[in-house]
Amino acid sequence: MNIFRLGGDLAHLLAIIILLLKIWTTRSCAGISGKSQILFALTFTARYLDLFTNFVSVYNSVMKVVYLAAAYATLYLMYVKFKATYDHNHDTFRLEFLILPAAGLALIINHEFSIIEVMWTFSIYLEAVAILPQLFMVSKTGEAESITSHYLFALGSYRALYIVNWVYRYYSEGFYDMIATLAGVVQTVLYCDFFYLYITKVLKGKKLQLPA
């Protein structure tokens, strides 16, 4: 564990909490892509199958349970409790276009052809693109509420910090994981355009609005 990894985990946790609080306090999930949230729940479910087979640390296990619980709580709020506020007309990304390629790739490029490893690899590939329905939704409506922007910024920072963590681990321990690193770079690159808009607009107190 190094400071970048911890920072990444905390940014991820912060993103999840921001989203839950936004939905809970405003009693609305307007502007949030349920499709992306389904993909994140699927990602955590596939990745943390090892929760009961591999014990790494109390920290790891607790974080896994928190991420899983938060992902399903978000789905519950969006699809059950505040279903009426869900903006499904703008959330039209086809999930199979992301799930099927991620599954296919996981079957071909993995560390080991076993259920737990293929599922882990699938979760890595799927997570890399899971935000696309959300970014697609923002581009379709042309704007995002500030709180949604903060959520996206925290979520993007998480994988960016993980990349720094991987560089650090490579030099300090000789550790690297090509699958996680390449997918992590793809994941972070997807946020670049958003990061630019966030820094140039939202941090200056303006609403995130895409140029017409």
Binding site: R5, D50, M63, E112, Y162, F175, A180
Partner: peptide, 10 residues
């Protein structure tokens, strides 16, 4: 053993 024990990331 699988790499997930060494990997230990979230």
């Amino acid at each position: 053993n699988n790499h997930l024990l060494v990997h230990d990331e979230l």
